[in-house]
Design a protein around this nucleic acid. Sequence first.
DNA 1: GCAAACTACCTTGCTATGTCAAGTAGCAGG
DNA 2: CCTGCTACTTGACATAGCAAGGTAGTTTGC
Lengths: 121, 121
Amino acid sequence: MPNAHDPQLLKGVLSLLLLCLLAERESYGYQLVQRLREIGLSDISDGTVYPALTRLEREGRVTSRLVTSRSGPARKYYRPTEAGYAALAQGTVHWLSLADVVNPVLSRPIPAQPAPPSEEV
Amino acid sequence: MPNAHDPQLLKGVLSLLLLCLLAERESYGYQLVQRLREIGLSDISDGTVYPALTRLEREGRVTSRLVTSRSGPARKYYRPTEAGYAALAQGTVHWLSLADVVNPVLSRPIPAQPAPPSEEV
DNA sequence: GCAAACTACCTTGCTATGTCAAGTAGCAGG
DNA sequence: CCTGCTACTTGACATAGCAAGGTAGTTTGC
């Protein structure tokens, strides 16, 4: 299981990823789930993505249009609005500045863990 | 406001940061708040850090000891347990693998945003 | 026709966790 | 004693990921 990701770590990042993928290419929900899995989020669930898209739309960061499909129900294609592009830019800044905080700390050498006293039982 | 960080982005990262800081140096809560502010999380609140420490302790990732202080109430010093060091290692892996997903996506060039039709008002 | 399988979307309940605000308490200085 | 700093605690609240289940349209095979 190379990809048992911590759900908590994903928080806030997902909407950023979605905006980014949509800026790259107009997509519908089911397709986004597949694209996310392809780029490495192998165990993401659609119950996570659809609500996230709904939120983004409610917040005015994406718009959608329905396109009928010949192999199933209509697809709801999303793409960023102007506000979405702005949010993408700002979210990117936030992510990068968080990484700028976390990475240096993680890469600082851990001083000799005091060998836990081998608790004679 | 150079550091209005997105609260959601911090989720899951905070406990990782705390473990890391504690692996570096045994500290008490108030001090951790200050250390976090120093490394760039300028607007983190103590109401965020103390519960996180309590959780870490409840999960057995840190232990604490009380040390009386001459300038205020007793200080509760925390440091990682063995499980804490393990969690730190694993959390680091999770963080890095998330960054490995997010960074490439963020750095992919955004194709020409279709100029939004300049809505004559 | 009808059932099964696949595509596509939505919703509900659960849970974890950061945030705000308020409270408790010890100590120091005026 | 009252104000202010240090230090920890607690409770109400909001957010957002996740699992599970539900609705529908299309295609295929019988």
